[in-house]
Amino acid sequence: MKPPPFQYAAPTSVAEAVELLGAHADDDARALAGGQSLVPLMNFRLAQPAYLIDLRRIEELTRIRTEGDTLVIGAMVRQSHAEHAPEIAVGAPLLAEALGYVAHPPIRNSGTVGGSIAHADPAAELPAVVLALDAELVLAGLGGTRTVAAADFFTGPFSTAIGSGEILTEVRIPRRAGGHAFVEFARTHGNFALVGVAAVVELDGGTVARASIALSGVAPVPVRATAAEEALTGTVPDDASIRAAVDAAVAGLSPAGDVHGGRETRTDIARSYLRRGIELALSRAGDRR
């Protein structure tokens, strides 16, 4: 299980990277972030890019900063660094919590925030998180940069709005009030989840003012549990209203089965974990009821 040959460059600026990407578009050039998804695929020879552009030396992509109410995370920030970064603990605790579920520490020490989002594995944690948080993804190309809303970013399993010749440079996360929760069900610790739930719930005097809930693992792309969000909003949450919200969300699901769980089992687990996620977010949002 050895990777196929490729050419390699490690530019030091986004401009240079984008230029290289454009110049080698015909060679199936790909950006290399932490490599924790791409290198295994190459070892299996399921991915065979002829040119890899390693983004590790582009310092501007490794910073975390706050712009007003927006947290800006460079795409090459390593997952383990983000997991423990004070800015993220404050600005996006949902993301910090979710990062603890991304594989294992040795993977997170190499894997990057941007890499995981750009890889767009439907079972992965971070895509669901950015979707729940209404984050924006900044893409740089030869023509400049553009910003894509998370809701428009994931276009299919392992496919995104990143265009040919573009790289993901930044994740912009608006600060959100309320209680957060990330919960997921994986068969073994650190393995891919069957279902993940990312939730933020804001209470106003005991009433749900706003709920954002995203699910991973139940569709070709991470999905918002819109029905649950709507069912919860405006209610004073109790067991019955939570159950109603969960049922509303689950009714709309038709997850594909695989060797770890068929459609029915995944739906069962989604039902269970939606409830757990909503309950945890509510308990953190303040007093329930």
Binding site: Y8, L32, G35, P40, N43, R56, P106, I107, N109, S110
Partner: peptide, 11 residues
């Protein structure tokens, strides 16, 4: 800690 089997030496 990192996985040296999913890391190219150039990285």
């Amino acid at each position: 800690s990192i996985r040296s089997c999913t890391t190219f030496a150039v990285q």
